[in-house]
């Protein structure tokens, strides 16, 4: 699953396979995404501005506002809570993202590796609204690209990131429940489509 397996241990995806899973429906594709590294970034008290500017120069763009996410080149970031963000980068080139980020922000921020705390499924296609409204209470039809909503799907806390309203979303949920989350997505798609 990528060039990072340069040691004796072979990685498996959150669903337990060696390759990411894909489920196709008419007008919808659900794709397991395994190629992103994640690290959380929290601002130390009194260092909110410092962490923002340090992160901005590392990421090449400002940290996102509440309830939103953005992408800058190979990086993406979303708002998790007050003074707390999740940063994402390609796993192949940034397996040690947390360390790199900590170096960039120094004492201004607290950084925690989050890569394997999460699973991610991307949902793409014209039927996104119909499926998502069976899954979560977010007002997706009123949503816009750049929205990052923490919501729950079948009792699982997830981040819902909107790439293109009605067309493309990322759903980031707890890794140990990847099977349950995947089942929820597929069952909702079968039901709605």
């Amino acid at each position: 699953m990528g060039k990072f397996d340069n040691h004796g241990l072979k990685a498996v995806s959150p669903l337990g396979g060696f390759e990411p899973q894909v489920d196709a429906f008419t007008g919808l594709l659900i794709r397991e995404v395994t190629d992103r590294a994640l690290a959380s970034l929290g601002a130390r008290q009194g260092s909110e501005d410092a962490v923002k500017s340090a992160a901005a120069s590392y990421l090449g763009g400002a940290l996102p506002e509440p309830a939103s996410w953005n992408a800058n080149g190979e990086f993406a970031a979303w708002w998790m809570g007050p003074d707390l963000w999740m940063i994402s980068a390609p796993h192949d080139s940034h397996e040690l993202l947390a360390g790199e980020l900590k170096e960039a922000v120094g004492e201004a921020g607290s950084v925690v590796e989050q890569t394997d705390g999460w699973c991610r499924f991307d949902m793409e296609g014209s039927r996104c609204f119909d499926v998502l409204e069976r899954l979560c209470n977010a007002n997706i039809r009123a949503g816009k690209p750049g929205d990052a909503t923490r919501t729950s799907m079948e009792h699982l806390g997830v981040f819902l990131l909107c790439h293109e309203a009605g067309q493309k979303y990322s759903i980031v949920g707890p890794r140990s429940s990847a099977g349950s989350l995947h089942h929820a997505l597929v069952a909702a798609a079968q039901s709605a489509i």
């Binding site: 959380s40 929290g42 601002a43 130390r44 008290q45 009194g46 003074d83 707390l84 607290s110 925690v112 590796e113 989050q114 890569t115 394997d116 705390g117 999460w118 707890p174 890794r175 140990s176």
Partner: peptide, 15 residues
């Protein structure tokens, strides 16, 4: 509220 401390769960991140 003014203690400098940041919390986050990492339960799932490590086997």
């Amino acid at each position: 509220p003014d203690m400098d401390v940041q919390l986050i769960s990492t339960t799932e991140a490590w086997a």
